[in-house]
Design a protein around this nucleic acid. Sequence first.
DNA 1: AATATTTTCGTGTACGTACACATTTTATTA
DNA 2: TAATAAAATGTGTACGTACACGAAAATATT
Lengths: 352, 352
Amino acid sequence: MLKKTELSGVKEIARRANVSIATVDRVIHNRPGVSIKTKEKIDAIIKEIDYKPNLLARRLASKKVFRFAVLIPKESTETEYWKAPLEGIQTAWSEMQVYGIDVSFFLYDLNDRKTFVEASEKIFQDTFQGVIVAPSFIGESVEFFKKCEALKIKCVFINSDISTVKPLSYIGPDLFQSGKLAGNLCKYLVPQQGKVLILNISRELDAEHHLLRKEAGFKAHFEEAQVSADIQVMSLYKTDYISVTKELDSYLKSHSVDLIFVTNSRVFTVAKYLEENNISGVRLVGYDYLSQNLSYVEKDVIDFLICQKPIEQGYQALLTLCEHFINQQVVDKIQFMPIDIITKENYNYYKN
Amino acid sequence: MLKKTELSGVKEIARRANVSIATVDRVIHNRPGVSIKTKEKIDAIIKEIDYKPNLLARRLASKKVFRFAVLIPKESTETEYWKAPLEGIQTAWSEMQVYGIDVSFFLYDLNDRKTFVEASEKIFQDTFQGVIVAPSFIGESVEFFKKCEALKIKCVFINSDISTVKPLSYIGPDLFQSGKLAGNLCKYLVPQQGKVLILNISRELDAEHHLLRKEAGFKAHFEEAQVSADIQVMSLYKTDYISVTKELDSYLKSHSVDLIFVTNSRVFTVAKYLEENNISGVRLVGYDYLSQNLSYVEKDVIDFLICQKPIEQGYQALLTLCEHFINQQVVDKIQFMPIDIITKENYNYYKN
DNA sequence: AATATTTTCGTGTACGTACACATTTTATTA
DNA sequence: TAATAAAATGTGTACGTACACGAAAATATT
C-alpha cells in the first residue's frame, strides 16, 4: 500500500510543450484554436511519451449524457429467448450508468411485423444517438436502418445481420458456420445412410432469414464431409405445440427419422413431443440455453444445444455503443460470438 | 448530449445530515472519530438513498498501490499452454494499471519442483498483498499457501485446485466434470464394444493430480451411461515426442484402439504420431486451445478439444484480487470456468 | 474555574480531465 | 498607426472521493 509518485498525463505534456493544459486538451480532442506549430509539437510529445488518457478522470469530468434506444423482440410465452439479450443490456447499463448514459426500450412482437414498425416510429419521435436493433424483419429493418443513417443515429445489430446494410457493428453468430457446426455434431449421431430431418419452426421466414442460413450451413457440412445421409427439410409456420404435434405426427407416420435438427430455440417443443409419445431412438439437436430446453438436455431427450451467448450479445452491444460514443474508439464492424456446444455435462458451467 | 443535473453522492449525504463530507467519508470507511449518534444518522441516510460510491472518483482519488505476485509455470518448448493465463493476467493488468496495482511475475518450470520452491522463496523476500498461484505441485503448494496465510497474503488458485486448502478464490475447471464431458463426447465416437485408451502424459503425477481427476470423470460417465467399451489407461512420464512415439508403438502393436483420450494439452504429440504413421480410424480427443493442437483439428486428426478459457482464467484471477482489495467486494470462493468444446467449425470464433 | 486532553468535526487540496471564460498575441482593417 | 477583429493560449472551476491538517466542542484534570 505504497504511494504513487511521478506526475503524468496532460500536465506532463503541457510542461514539456511549454503550454497550458487547456491547449493540450484542445489538440487531444482536435478542437480548433491551436496553431499548427504547437499542435505538431504537442502531437509529437503525445507520441513520444505514449500518452494514454485516464479514462476514469475523463469520464468523471465529462458531463455528457448519451441516449440509446433498444429495438428487440419481447420475451413471449412461446420462447423466453429474448430475455437474455435484454438482461445483458440491462447489466451493461447498470455498470455504465455512472458514465452518463440513458437507455430506452422498445420491444416488439416477433409474430407481428407491424409492432416493429410502430416501435421504430416511436424511436424517431424522440432523440437518440444510438440504437441496438434485432433486425428480425428484413424489409422493415432495412428501411429503419436507412432512416437512422439519414438522422445520424448509429445502429448496432444483434443476433442476426442483413447482408445488404452495414451498421456500426454486428454482434452475433456466424449463422452459416453455426449450421455447419451442427452438421458436424449430427454427423457423429446418425448411422450410415441415416435419416435426418431439419425443422424450421417460425412464423416468419424471409428469403434471407437466419434459420435458412443455418440450414444451408448444415447441409454444406454433410456435403463436404461426404456423409451419406438422407436430409429432409420441413418448415412449420404455426409455432404452437398443438400444431407442431400434428405436423410431426403426420410426418413420422410416413417417414423414419434418426435425428431431428431444429434450427432455433423451439427445439423444446419437439422434445416435449418425443417424450410424451415415448419416441426413443431419435437424436435431437437444437439451439439456445433456455430453461425449457435445458430440462430436456438433463433428461437426455436433447443431445446437444448450440448456443451463441445471448446475454453477452446484449452486453457487448451496449458496450460497443459506449466505446464508440464515450471513448471514441473505433469498434469492430463484425463481432462474431463463439459457437458453443451445450451438453448435459457442461451446461451448469455455461455463461450465457 | 445533454447535461446531468442533480447533485449526488457524499455531498448529498452531508447536506442531509448537516455535517461535512469528511465526516461522511469517515463513516463510509468506518474510520474512528465519529460520535455514535452522527454515525447512525449518516448510516441511515446512506441506506435511505441507497448510496453507491462512484468508483471512478474513488479510484481516481485513491493513491493506494497494491502489489501482487504471480506464481505460475513458464511456457515451455513442450507446451505453450501457460502463455494463455499469463496473457490474461497481463491484459487485466494493463486495463487496471490506472487503479494503482503492481504485478510481479515468478515463473517456474513444470518439470522441476525445485524451481517452484525457489520462486516462492523469492516472493516472501518481498512484500505482496496478494498472489496468483497455479498449484501444480500439491505438497509444495500446500506449504506455500500456509506460509501466505501466516503472512496475511491472499492467494488465488488458477487452473487446478487442492481440496485440502481454501484460498481466497479458485478459478478454473471442475476437473471431474470436465472428464465426464469428454466421456460423453467420446461415447458418440466409439462403436459398440469399442476400445478406448486414456493417455496421461506428464512428468509429475501426484496422487491428487488434476489429470487423474479428469480420468476419473471420464470413466464415471462411461459407467453411468453403461457404455460397453474397453477402457485402458496409460501414463507416460517422459513427455518428449520420441518417448511418446516409442510407447505408442509398442502399445499399438499388441492392442487395437478406436479412440484415444489425452487428459491434457499434449494431445498434439499423439496427433503428430498418428499422422506421421498414417494411422487412420483412431478418434482423438484432448485438451486446450493451442496452435499446436488446432492445426490437427483443422486436419481432422483431432476430433474434439476441450477447453477451459485459460486466458480468462488469468484475467479473472487478477480481477478477483482487485475486487477484493480495491473495491473491497466479497469474491466467490469458487469460480468454475465453462467447459468448452472446440471443433473444426467453431475454433475460429472461440475466445480463449 | 482554568487548563489540558481527548473526541468530534470541518476546511482545503489533490487525483486527471473537460470546458467556460478571460487574456494575450497576431492578423486585418480603417 | 491606431483601432479592431480574429486567432491562440491561459486561468479557474468542476466532476466525486480521499485524506492531511487544523478548528471546535466535549470531557477530563488540576
